[in-house]
Amino acid sequence: MESALPLHERSVGWRKWVLRFPSILYLGLMILVPLIVIIQDGLSEGIAELVYQVSLPIAKHAIQLTLWTSALMTLINAVMGLITAYVLVRFEFPGKRLLNAIIDLPLAIPTLVTGVMLVMLYGPQEALGQFLSTKMGIEVIFAPPGIVLALLFISFPFVVRNIQPVLQDLDLTQERAAETLGANSWQTFWRIVFPALVLPVINGSLLSFSRAIGEFGAVVVVAGNIPLRTQTAAVYTLGAVESQNRLGASAVSILLISIAFLVLLMTNLIQKKWGAH
């Protein structure tokens, strides 16, 4: 440390900007400037106009649909991701390595392809889709269940991959100690294992939520583009851009950005508050 400090102090004047300037410039050009442009654009007619734009029936429905399908997906993802991670870490079974590899697949598959796959499986002309709609009365494609399925598919890795490393590092002797104290496996899971996983579950869930609200590719194929029925916020935005409704597009975009930003902020706060312990 003693030798490193003077070296650090010596890099004064223009020298210390040699590396910093390009990276700051890059960050600014790539991320900040577009953000500023869209915010400035959305606010160009004043806040009232922005509020008006997002409260138009079609826009409002699209935003609501996006939020509730994403929320539902997040809930399912949290539970299933937790179970999947627990099974993957704590149990041995044939095909475990394969399953572990498959989990990352949704990140690699283009989301548009995801949508096509779901249509091929649940489409009204397909066997499963037909069975679900005629026998069970559940429409999947061009309906909200399709959106939830698509979102589940694309964001599945987020929860699992957040829990896995924590669970792996979790001291197995704590579980064994609980066993020697008479706890059954259910009590051990809820009282000993789960409390340690709350944080990664919340983290992963929030991440998958913010990933989901902006999803376009998979959703547009599965849900179609039916205003007031299956049009999500991202799809609405595209329509607005195409129909020269620049203000509508930027207003919904700003809302999506704000929600995503808020979620990120929450994740960081939670991390700071409980993660330190």
Partner: peptide
């Protein structure tokens, strides 16, 4: 099973429930 053996076990790394 362990749960029914009435043993007290102390581990090297304490294994206290951290939360």
């Amino acid at each position: 099973p362990t749960q029914k053996r009435k043993v007290g076990f102390v581990f090297q790394n304490y294994a206290l429930f951290q939360h």
